[in-house]
């Protein structure tokens, strides 16, 4: 017979997702790190007369010490100082490329969303087609055509990253189009252009800005990868990718500090950027999952 004695239910650890901790926990450290990075990257090169290209073979390949916090590279250049300049270059590339791709994506997405019909269908198919090509490969092709240079890298990143912005803007515009205030504007005699610039674009602006900030780490990562492959910025320019590429050789003779510093700096900066924009996104659309992309 079945055992009918009462037994306590097994202790279970399966619980619903706990509510996310207060955004302060993410915002504060991220903002502080971002602030420090921004100040260092923007201000240090202005006020401190140190040459990041300064070569001193006498102190080449020194491990970290009090004088050189992250050591020196194979030409005796200070790794920390080069990191600051490298981050400056990488962030510039990232921000410029993100802004260009956001503008291009917004234009395409807004046009597709507001015109609709066969135009929308064709444009979105093209977006899907481009999205099927692995980003880095497409970037490599573009760099190969334009030859490795700063502008080639920026163009290659912009051309591969506008798809996200286009998709976001299109879907936002599609949902905004059905709202009463747009009907009201059209009834009030607004032209297509006026509806677009006065009513649609201002309403997608927050989403676009958010997408742009989230795109910056992506763009920086892309630049780093291209430079690492030798297809990015010119070899003498200090960028995170170039520094890690150079540091490969030194690894063989035990110079771990030359690749450690730029990598760590990049990780910390990326985490800070995504931390801040994650809090922002939760404010913007609280229903979205917070965990997946932080």
């Amino acid at each position: 017979m079945a055992d009918l004695t009462w037994r306590p239910a097994p202790r279970s650890r399966l619980t619903a997702a706990s509510p996310p901790r207060s955004p302060k926990w993410r915002l504060l450290p991220s903002a502080v790190v971002l602030g420090v990075v921004a100040v260092t990257v923007l201000v240090v090169p202005l006020f401190v007369e140190l040459n990041e290209q300064y070569v001193d073979l006498a102190i080449a390949n020194r491990p970290p010490s009090a004088a050189h916090l992250f050591g020196t590279d194979e030409l005796g250049r200070d790794v920390l100082l080069r990191c600051v300049y490298a981050l400056r270059v990488s962030l510039t590339v990232g921000v410029v490329a993100a802004v260009i791709s956001a503008v291009a994506g917004t234009a395409v997405g807004a046009l597709a969303g507001s015109i609709g019909g066969w135009f929308d269908r064709i444009v979105m198919r093209v977006v899907d087609a481009i999205a099927s090509v692995p980003h880095l490969l497409l970037g490599i092709v573009i760099v190969a055509i334009l030859r490795p240079s700063l502008s080639a890298v920026i163009i290659s990143i912009a051309l591969t990253h506008w798809l996200t912005a286009a998709r976001i803007v299109r879907s936002e515009v599609l949902s905004l189009r059905t709202r009463p205030f747009i009907d009201a504007a059209i009834m009030g005699g607004a032209t297509r252009l006026q509806v677009m610039t006065r009513h649609l674009l201002p309403n997608v602006a927050p989403q676009v800005l958010l997408a742009t900030t989230l795109m910056v780490p992506h763009a920086v990562w892309h630049e780093t990868a291209l430079s690492f492959l030798g297809l990015g910025l010119p070899p003498h320019a200090a960028s995170i990718g170039n520094m890690i590429n150079d540091a490969q050789r030194s690894l063989l003779i035990g110079g771990w500090w030359m690749s450690l510093a730029p990598g760590l700096l990049l990780i910390v900066t990326t985490l800070a950027v995504s931390g801040v924009s994650g809090v922002w996104r939760d404010r913007l659309n609280p229903k979205r999952r917070t965990e997946l992309t932080w």
Partner: peptide
Amino acid sequence: CYALEAAPVFWLGLA
């Protein structure tokens, strides 16, 4: 996971 997401894969490889 968050840290690994932010780390460039070639840097990880070198490490």
